[in-house]
């Protein structure tokens, strides 16, 4: 029970940190589960430091960004000239349909092979 609450407290602080609002003072989180304060305090402190370290945003180079934009639009126009809805039907077939069709095809092939071998075994008997 305590374990789940402890994880909830850590998750709450992480959400507050990740939203960029700045977490509340550590005591506010410790008060929720005072019986585990000794264990929680260092974890809350590590989370604060990790958040500060990892929230630095790195942006892509402008030339790369523009070049990729151009390439994607060229491909989009080539692949979906009239929009995605008007693209050839085979492009919009979902993976599950493809897997289903492959499974049916495989099953038919296996059934064919089984029928062939059964037939082969029966033939000599017919001519005996």
């Amino acid at each position: 029970m305590d374990e789940a609450l402890l994880q909830d407290v850590l998750a709450k602080q992480a959400d507050d940190l990740a939203r960029g609002e700045g977490a509340k003072p550590r005591e506010a989180y410790l008060q929720i589960l005072p019986s585990r304060a000794a264990e929680l305090a260092p974890l809350l402190e590590i989370a604060e430091r990790t958040s500060r370290l990892m929230s630095v945003q790195v942006k892509p180079d402008a030339a790369f960004r523009e070049e990729l934009h151009r390439e994607l639009l060229a491909m989009a126009q080539q692949r979906y000239p009239g929009g995605w809805a008007n693209s050839p039907p085979w492009m919009n077939v979902s993976r599950s349909w493809i897997i289903g069709a492959a499974a049916v095809g495989s099953a038919v092939s296996v059934a064919g092979l089984v029928a062939y071998f059964i037939r082969q075994r029966q033939l000599p008997a017919l001519f005996r």
Binding site: L73, A76, A85
Partner: peptide, 27 residues
């Protein structure tokens, strides 16, 4: 939804997410 009719709408999708996806991968 516009992507259904207009392939250039992908440009807007790209602009909306590219910085975040790049930053995520760079991490």
């Amino acid at each position: 939804e516009r992507m259904k009719e207009d392939p250039l709408a992908f440009g807007e999708i790209y602009e909306h997410y590219v910085d975040r996806i790049y930053n995520y991968i760079y991490q």
